[in-house]
């Protein structure tokens, strides 16, 4: 079982990202579980969401305390030293940020990659919602799930221009990271 924790701010689609990742896992033939950290939802406030995927049925229902992967949608959250709390040894984080990846990696003492998903989203979908680009970049890096599974998940959730723009965005974002660079840790 692989566990993910997604950190973002209200309005960035963190919960949607969790559901999309889980749906993509299902489309790829895996079991999945996704849920938000249940709190008062408001735009701009920190939001956390959780995803588990694996080959076997998932029974555990606690919040994800020891994630294998962190997906950080807003780099203003990097001021929190507890952001990587519980991250497994060898765990990694992908951050929506224009910052230097090495600097973030050394701050948190884990492997990190920064990608400016907001900028790509603004250019491709016309809105600063980084979730689908960040997921696509993550899948490109790790190869945990095929990008086409994310495309299928998007088709189940969006229609028309929003869908087409997002499909273009995820192709671009996946190409923007070194293909399969983090693939060695794949273990669903």
């Amino acid at each position: 079982m692989i566990e993910f924790r997604i950190h973002g701010r209200g309005g960035q689609g963190s919960v949607a990202a969790a559901y999309l990742l889980a749906t993509a896992a299902f489309e790829a033939g895996l079991m999945c579980q996704a849920f938000p950290a249940f709190g008062a939802e408001r735009r701009g406030a920190p939001v956390t969401a959780f995803v588990r995927i694996g080959h076997d049925p998932i029974h555990l229902r606690s919040q994800v305390r020891t994630p294998d992967w962190l997906i950080v949608q807003d780099d203003s959250l990097l001021i929190d030293p507890n952001l990587t709390s519980g991250l497994k040894d060898g765990g990694s984080m992908i951050v929506n940020s224009a910052r230097d990846s090495n600097e973030v990696a050394s701050t948190f003492g884990c492997r990190a990659l920064c990608i400016d998903a907001t900028q790509m989203a603004v250019e491709e979908i016309g809105r600063p919602i980084p979730n689908t680009a960040l997921l696509a970049a993550f899948l490109g890096l790790t190869g945990i799930l095929p990008l086409k599974a994310l495309g299928t998940a998007l088709r189940g959730r969006f229609h028309g221009d929003v869908l087409e723009n997002n499909l273009r965005l995820i192709e671009r974002a996946a190409r923007a990271v070194p293909d399969g660079a983090w693939k060695e840790t794949e273990d669903a």
Binding site: A18, F26, M31, Q33, A34, F35, F38
Partner: peptide
């Protein structure tokens, strides 16, 4: 509530 109602699963 939430633990089931808001959880996506297969």
């Amino acid at each position: 509530g939430f633990i089931l109602t808001h959880t996506m699963e297969v």
